[in-house]
């Protein structure tokens, strides 16, 4: 088991180094860094001196090492566009993205799991069929189109909800939150539904499939034979055993929620990291792109690692399997 963890750690480090290498290559070889820093009237000698002073003539590995070390400390230099440290820009936008992602994840779970259980228990019910058909449409609806439709109905036609931005936010030290104001909460509704819908259908289908599988097993039949009430069989026996894959998939989906936030944020002009990244692509603002690359890779690596470890903790059968597999 220790071997498995170490293997995963090494794999994570390799992934991070690869992403850092791409980010570094962007930094170093797209355009001339010196040109991005100095004015037109700087002489060649001054440029060379600056180049030497900044260490741009050092060997590749030395430069890469310096970049990786700076990234690890969260230093990504100055944004070309905003003329401010990238670290500050990200710190400002991180709360917006994380709040949106968290609300969406909770929403997807809170609606997806009950729908999955219901469709599994009443397989041929009218409502179940409706849910299943709707979920297929949900899979075929691109995220941005859901957002546009919501904006059209609730923003343009009914005028109930704000269609862009975060509303008023409250600044609590290093974090800004939209949870404490009415306009902040209202602004949260449409983007979070947009972001949650796809995950919701995924979780619903997953819970349904797992429930159907578990309901066929002997121990559920046995629980029925013992005369336990349906409620107890369904929730204490069946649902509990479907939770392992649901936890894993939800954990992994947390990463894709953050990734899909790029789309939702640009539909709703939500001032988060995703919107900043899309704008950075348009402006060729390399420091922001590099920082976003490294940050998103870090998110994914951590999430995957935690989910793998959780898996081992939650399901004792896996521990034995892995141990024997590694022992061979």
């Amino acid at each position: 088991m220790l071997g498995f963890i170490v293997k995963r750690m090494i794999q994570s480090v390799i992934v991070m180094l690869t992403v850092a290498l791409i980010a570094f290559a962007l930094f170093r070889y797209v355009g001339d860094p010196i040109n991005n820093m100095v004015g037109q009237d700087t002489t060649v000698e001054e440029r060379d001196e600056l180049r030497e002073r900044l260490g741009l003539n050092d060997p590749f590995l030395v430069q890469f090492g310096r970049f990786a070390w700076a990234s690890a400390k969260g230093e990504f230099g100055f944004s070309y566009q905003h003329r401010r440290p990238v670290r500050d820009l990200i710190a400002e936008r991180l709360p917006a993205t994380l709040e949106l992602s968290m609300v969406s994840a909770v929403l997807a779970l809170a609606v997806g799991i009950p729908m999955g259980v219901y469709t599994a228990l009443r397989r041929d019910g009218f409502l179940s069929r409706a849910f299943m058909s709707l979920s297929l449409i949900g899979v075929s609806l691109p995220t941005f189109l859901i957002g546009i439709l919501l904006i059209l109905f609730f923003g343009v036609i009914l005028r109930w909800l704000p269609t862009f931005g975060r509303g008023d936010v409250v600044d609590i030290g290093w974090w800004t939150t939209g949870f404490l104001t009415v306009s902040g909460l209202k602004a949260m509704i449409m983007p979070s539904i947009t972001l949650a819908l796809f995950q919701m259908t995924l979780i619903m289908r997953l819970v349904r499939a797992e429930m159907l599988e578990v309901l066929r097993t002997d121990f559920v039949k046995f629980a029925r034979a013992r005369g336990l009430p349906d409620r107890s069989v369904h929730f204490r026996h069946a649902l509990k055993n479907t939770m392992v894959p649901v936890i894993t998939i939800t954990g992994l989906q947390l990463g894709s929620i953050i990734a899909f936030a790029i789309i939702t944020e640009s539909v709703f002009q939500w001032p988060g990291m995703g919107l900043m990244f899309i704008q950075a692509i348009g402006e060729v603002d390399i420091p922001i792109m590099a920082a976003y690359l490294v940050l998103i890779a870090l998110f994914f690596v951590i999430i995957n690692l935690v989910v793998d470890l959780l898996y081992l903790v939650v399901d004792p059968r896996l521990r034995v399997d892995r141990a024997t597999a590694n022992g061979q």
């Binding site: 794999q11 992934v15 962007l26 992994l252 894709s256 899909f260 692509i281 060729v284 998103i296």
Partner: peptide
């Protein structure tokens, strides 16, 4: 298969977006 594992842990749309975005600026 290791490369496939790693790639599978990132959503496809994110990979496409990153490749396209990076190529655009390069």
């Amino acid at each position: 298969m290791r490369v496939a594992d790693v790639q599978l842990s990132f959503p496809a749309i994110l990979i496409a977006l990153l490749i396209d975005g990076v190529a655009r600026s390069v």
